[in-house]
Structure formats: structure tokens, C-alpha cells
């Protein structure tokens, strides 16, 4: 979209490839993400979406190609490194620990400790985190009943909202959402899409992976289509209709090579 064009490129991969044995999962993919932009990443099963997500989130190192964050070349040897650099990833169906409370999940890996010696020993500031978790989630537009309830007691939609809220509230630059509306009812999915819009407003770059094409068409600025490990189309969302998007994904609509390749 016109607005996004003016913004700076926040995250970029150039010509990345990944093979698993003899299978080429990703073949020279290039992608630019701007601050405040939502990209939809679509493609059939096996098109290379999850491999690209793993490269972007630091879970897998690519065999070839370059990664740039804020114009600076980077490489991730672990998800932790990407996380520390400001890239949050929400994985499909596995974002939360069901036995932990909402606030424990929100702060997992980044806990606040009490002051003094006990804090050095790792003793946690539970009340403070519960309060902050509640505030953080509200800020990104998620109403959660109580921050001290175990996640297992929440509905599927609430859980997903917490997972996304967690990612959005922690993300400093980029947020990658892998199938966040999967298994959700229409109303709950709508809430998730609202959160994505909130993240965009916050100036984050959002990569949204989904099979649910109406959601993609609704919330994204640009759509990137993967087929057989290659990016076959990268165009503003406004240039797609539901039918042309399906055609591009399945290959019934011929695509020209993406410019600059």
C-alpha cells in the first residue's frame, strides 16, 4: 500500500535457500517487510511457508542467502537470538504452556524478579507480573478475565488471543504469526485480526501466514505467494480477488517472475 512504501524496510531476506537432504524446501526466496506493514504469506502445503517462517524466526539457518534487520546483515543461530533482536514468532498451535497462568505465559523467558538477594536467586515478582500482563494485554486490545488463571481454563479463542497478545506486547520490530486463526470461530478470529491491526498501528512489521484466504485479504497490505519453494508472486493485496489468489496459489493462473530476480 502507498503508506507502507514510504516507510523504511525493517526486515529483509535475500535469495535464501534451504534443502533437507535432496528436497529443496526453499529456493532463492527474497522478501522485504516494512515497518507498519502486514504481509500475507500464502501457499499450498509443502510450498515452503513453514521453512521460510523457520528461517525468519531463527529456528533454522538457511543454506544460502542473506538476512537483514534494519539494513544490517544478521544471522540467527537460535530462536533466542532472533527473539532478543526484536523478532517475535507465534507458532501454530503451540504458543502457550497450558498449565501456567496467563501472566506466567506472557512473561515466560522474560520474568520479573523481586529486588535484592532473592531476586538474584530467581524469585519472581508474581503480583507485579500479573498486573503488568493484564495491562499489556489490554493495551493490545485483548480482554482476558484474570491474569492468574491457568491457560488450560481459557477457551481456544482466549488462548490464542493471549498468545498473540504476548507476541505483540513483546515484539519490538517484527512479529511472525503462523496460522493464528486456525481452529477459531468467526468472532474469535475477528478479535485476532483486530490484534494484528493493532500491531500494525504500533509500527511493527507483521508476517501473517494463513490458509484462510478471506482473513489474508482482509488484514494484509501485501501478499506473497509461495509455490514449490519459490516466491511466485509478491503484490499489493488490492490487486487480488479471492479467485485470483486461489488461482495463483494452485498455479492455474500463470505468474511472471517476480521483478529483480
Amino acid at each position: 500500500m502507498a503508506g507502507a512504501e514510504k516507510r523504511e524496510v525493517i526486515y529483509e531476506v535475500k535469495n535464501v535457500s534451504k534443502r533437507y537432504g535432496s528436497v529443496v524446501a526453499l529456493d532463492g526466496a527474497s522478501l522485504k517487510l516494512h515497518a507498519g506493514e502486514v504481509i500475507g504469506l500464502v501457499g499450498d502445503n509443502g510450498a515452503g511457508k513453514s521453512t521460510l517462517v523457520k528461517v525468519l524466526s531463527g529456528a533454522h539457518e538457511p543454506d544460502g542467502g542473506q538476512i537483514f534487520l534494519d539494513g544490517e546483515e544478521r544471522s540467527w543461530s537460535s530462536p533466542r537470538e532472533a527473539l532478543d533482536a526484536g523478532i517475535e514468532t507465534l507458532y501454530q498451535d503451540s504458543g502457550l504452556a497450558p498449565h501456567l497462568t496467563v501472566s506466567q505465559n506472557v512473561f515466560l523467558g522474560r520474568e520479573k524478579t523481586v529486588k535484592g538477594l532473592l531476586g538474584k536467586l530467581g524469585f519472581l515478582a508474581r503480583k507485579e507480573m500479573e498486573h503488568d500482563a493484564h495491562a499489556d494485554l489490554e493495551r493490545v486490545g485483548i480482554a482476558v478475565p484474570a491474569a492468574n488463571r491457568p491457560v488450560a481454563q481459557l477457551s481456544g479463542g482466549q488462548r490464542q488471543a493471549v498468545a498473540i497478545g504476548r507476541a505483540v506486547s513483546w515484539a519490538r520490530k517484527v512479529i511472525i504469526l503462523d496460522e493464528p486463526t486456525n481452529h477459531l470461530g468467526a468472532r474469535q478470529a475477528g478479535e485476532v485480526l483486530e490484534v494484528i491491526k493493532a500491531a500494525k498501528k504500533k509500527g511493527l512489521g507483521v508476517i501473517f501466514i494463513s490458509h484462510t484466504l478471506p482473513h489474508v485479504l482482509e488484514v494484509t497490505d501485501r501478499i506473497v505467494v509461495l509455490r514449490l519453494g519459490r516466491i511466485v508472486k509478491d503484490a499489493p493485496t488490492s490487486t487480488f480477488t479471492g479467485d485470483t489468489l486461489v488461482g495463483t496459489i494452485t498455479g492455474t493462473i500463470q505468474t511472471i517472475k517476480v521483478e529483480g530476480d
Binding site: P79, D84, L100, G109
Partner: peptide, 16 residues
Amino acid sequence: TYAIGSNTFAARAAGI
């Protein structure tokens, strides 16, 4: 300890 037993994947993703 709870996080790992509850969901190892989530624990790892959280940087543990």
C-alpha cells in the same frame, strides 16, 4: 520446570 513439562515447544520458543 513447569513450563517444560507443560509444553516443551513453548518453553523453547520462549527462549528457555
